[in-house]
């Protein structure tokens, strides 16, 4: 079987011919589709730097074979902002000083977007820390990250309420 896949990538349809089934989603994004925002840290599912959304759910793109993704909807850090308008989680990371070197930040932000969509941690700081434990920050910016996720969670609760009204 020729592993050729069709994706919706950050809202745009993409047909991708794969010459090798070994390609992970992470390498596909970075090396073949010119989307280097998603970062390679450990490449073994231990650090979370490669987190993206697949069909709305956060996963480690380093452990996902691209060949398995025909028909999937992928969102990466490049797909979050609307033009110059940052996504609320991106804005909250800046406001809360939630990074130093920035290498883990795209994965942190995508994981936070996934966590907020899961709607299980709420504004409880301990639940946010537990929910974000799959993202390691070598600079230990965890304090700011936790506050940023809480702030963005508050914002999204407001948005949901407005939508319902």
């Amino acid at each position: 079987m020729s592993p050729s896949i069709s994706l919706t990538l950050n809202g745009a349809k993409r047909d991708v011919a794969l010459d090798d089934p070994r390609v992970t989603l992470l390498d596909l994004l970075r090396e073949r589709l010119a989307l280097p925002g998603t970062k390679k840290g450990c490449d073994r599912g231990q650090c979370g730097a490669c987190t993206v959304l697949v069909n709305g759910r956060r996963v480690n793109s380093c452990l996902t074979l691209a060949a398995t993704l025909d028909g999937a909807e992928i969102t990466t850090i490049e797909g979050l902002a609307a033009g110059d308008d940052l996504h609320p989680v991106q804005a909250a990371f800046i406001e809360n000083d939630a990074f130093q070197c920035g290498y883990c930040t795209p994965g942190q932000i995508m994981s936070a977007v996934g966590l907020i969509a899961e709607d299980r941690a709420g504004e409880d700081l301990e639940r946010i820390r537990e929910g974000m434990s799959g993202n390691i920050c070598r600079c230990a910016a965890y304090h700011g990250i936790t506050l940023a996720v809480r702030q963005a969670t508050r914002g999204s609760a407001g948005i949901k309420k407005d939508d319902a009204a």
Partner: peptide
């Protein structure tokens, strides 16, 4: 077990 990302997969 694992993390939110890994449990989703």
């Amino acid at each position: 077990g694992a993390s939110g990302q890994l449990r989703n997969a």
